[in-house]
Amino acid sequence: MFTALLVALPLIIGQHWQVNLLVFTLMYAGLAAAWNLLGGYTGYPALGHGAFFGIGAYAMAIGTNHIGVGAGYRSFLLVLPIALATGVAVLPIARLLMRTRAATFALLSITVMFMVQTFAYNLRSLTHGSEGISVPLAPFPATTFERPFYYAMAALLALTLLVCWAVRTSKLGLSLNAVRDDEDRARGLGVQTELVKLVAFALSAGLTAGFGAVWAYYVTFVFPGFAIDPLLSLGVILMAFLGGRRTLWGPVVGAALIVPAQQYFAYRYGASHLYLVAYAALFLLVIYLLPDGIIPSIAARLTRLTRLTTRCAHTPRAHIADSIADKDSITDKGERV
């Protein structure tokens, strides 16, 4: 049903700005889902996904310009190779990063982003430095210009969700959960922690680069501060948190709520600085009011409802167990440690 909706949407609403909004919504949904592979399932707080997005964007820009792959739909053929190549190319650095944990990992991941940005600024022969590279404009008819990009993003999002689903339902997902809960114990129990972490990293980075590639072709201009954006990394995390980290659909829900709000805000108030403030404020609201995200909160509400009905139904024992559980949750809240 979701697929049908995705396919039909741009045919129903044809306004340029609406489709444009949808393109970005899908892109962020996919980015958040890709981040979730590493930041959610594996529990490694990656803050530097802007780096991989930028690598994808630059690869696309350079690919279409220098190598001279013909314009038009054929440029989309570059997206998957870029995603694959990035996924493979990040492995050595992933190996290094994955030896660290928690805060140190967060810190190194953001450092990688700064490194990539430095490269983008300084390797002028390749990236044209701070001037940026323009990507040849796609020769699509003006009336439906956004549509091919929309479908490209949709396909990539579908692929990302498929990967997430496959990971979740496989042994890989279980291993990643084990790594998240207690890595040392997982290794002790024979989980190939190094390997599964690398796979999660590569999948996450590769998919992110794929979205970067489509994005570059869509916006037709790539420049370091824009393509490798710390705000992108933060935005993606915000969406994953809002929708529900570690769930399959959480990132999509988060993006569907945030991206339109963000675009509306940007059009309405223009000033990009106010927008930074609003973003940060929204983030804090989400973390403090909905720490588990929308989908887990709804799920918890539902279980509580069903529990209530069973409690009314009978069994004094279940009743006692429930009240004990409730009390536990209260002391949990009241105390630290």
Binding site: P45, L47, A106, H273, L276, V277, A280, F283, I287
Partner: peptide, 13 residues
Amino acid sequence: LIVLYAIGIGIQG
């Protein structure tokens, strides 16, 4: 850590 990062971006704004 992520909250502090967001605070940083907010103050920058």
